[in-house]
Design a protein around this nucleic acid. Structure first.
Lengths: 208, 208
DNA sequence: GTCTATAAGGTGATAGAC
DNA sequence: GTCTATCACCTTATAGAC
């Protein structure tokens, strides 16, 4: 149909001094899939649509993923790895109040910086094959456990008033994640103002 | 659009002492669609699957909905109508603190009682045709405005400390709606205990 | 009101040319 | 690595028999 790059015979024989097509096409496939899955949903997006965004034919996608399911899992897994690594790289604090403040600001910033990945991480869990779901679910719990540990430390030290740390964990995360439903860069409030407003609410919610 | 009681030539002349097939099949179609959409997602569910749940052939569904999109819209519209009507039927309070307490308890109970409808109301908005989305979005804002009015009244009377009522509204709703991600009937906590825990957090979050 | 049959087209994935 | 072509199957929706 449309032949954009009839490199075919020639390129294979040429000295390939830098990145092959796959070094470029691979990330483009992931970017297109992330964007389309976030916009229309995994089930509503076809491999042909993704290929169209990338500028290749559908068959070529299978050089980069064994199937559509693996593509979704790879995106979600990569996102959760990023999340856990980024939080692990944050400087730690002794004081639970300061830890909670850092978690609050971190979570808001991280989420706002990658709205599409956050969106599919919440919306497309049900489209994961069971074994893939189990992996992501475990990582999600590991992240929740980070916040729960902060709350429990604060309760133990008497600086938080939280009757049920597990529920408070889920409540705080739900509240913070909600930012993504309305925040738009260049809107009424800066990231810093948003972080401050939510920190005030979180701080009071846990009785700090 | 949907003719619920045609029953063709015969029934029209007969004394119809009780429900025709359509009186039974219609609700069954809606129930099956709600359950399947919630479980697998709108795009992933076929009309044949819905028909299979109901116990009819796919073609018969079109006696109850002009198309798949209208079926989704009808479910979401019905849910939002129920939500707004149920809140309107709640007894009102003069005191903003008491109003907020009632809203908190109402929202949690209403959501917990119909997890599937709540789920698709959040997940399937993007699968609505633009004109249908506009209708649901308007209703969603009307509901948010109810809470925002409570918060603004509380700020005006000096019983809440909320720098940005709009954001506080969205934060509180996000926190409360999060209950549905973990609550299961017969679990560790009763509905009443959950309502109490969340009310404590909401109350403190708004500085009441 | 429900059935069967069908239209018209989309789906994920693969084979083999280049 | 990407193409074209294809397989086997699924999709929504409609037509007409009963």
């Amino acid at each position: 149909m449309i032949d954009l790059n009839v490199c075919s015979v020639h390129c294979g024989a040429m000295a390939r001094t830098q990145g092959s097509h796959s070094d470029i096409t691979g990330p483009k496939v992931r970017d297109a899939a992330l964007r389309l899955f976030a916009r229309h949903g995994f089930a509503a997006v076809s491999m042909r649509q993704i290929a169209g965004e990338v500028g290749v034919q559908a068959g070529a996608l299978y050089n980069y993923t064994p199937d559509k399911q693996s593509l979704l899992f790879s995106l979600l897994k990569g996102h959760m790895d990023d999340l856990l690594a980024a939080w692990a790289a944050e400087p730690t604090a002794r004081d639970p109040v300061e830890s909670l403040a850092r978690f609050t600001r971190f979570h808001i910033r991280f989420n706002i910086e990658r709205p599409e990945a956050i969106f599919i991480s919440y919306m497309e869990l049900r489209n994961l094959a069971p074994e893939n779901f189990a992996v992501i679910e475990k990582q999600r719990r590991a992240y929740e456990d980070e916040l729960e540990a902060i709350l429990r430390a604060g309760v133990a030290q008497g600086c938080f008033e939280v009757p049920d740390p597990k529920i408070a964990t889920l409540a705080v995360i739900a509240m913070l994640t909600g930012v993504n439903t309305w925040y738009r860069a260049g809107g009424r409030l800066s990231l810093d103002e948003v972080q401050q407003i939510y920190w005030d609410m979180v701080r009071r919610a846990v009785g700090a």
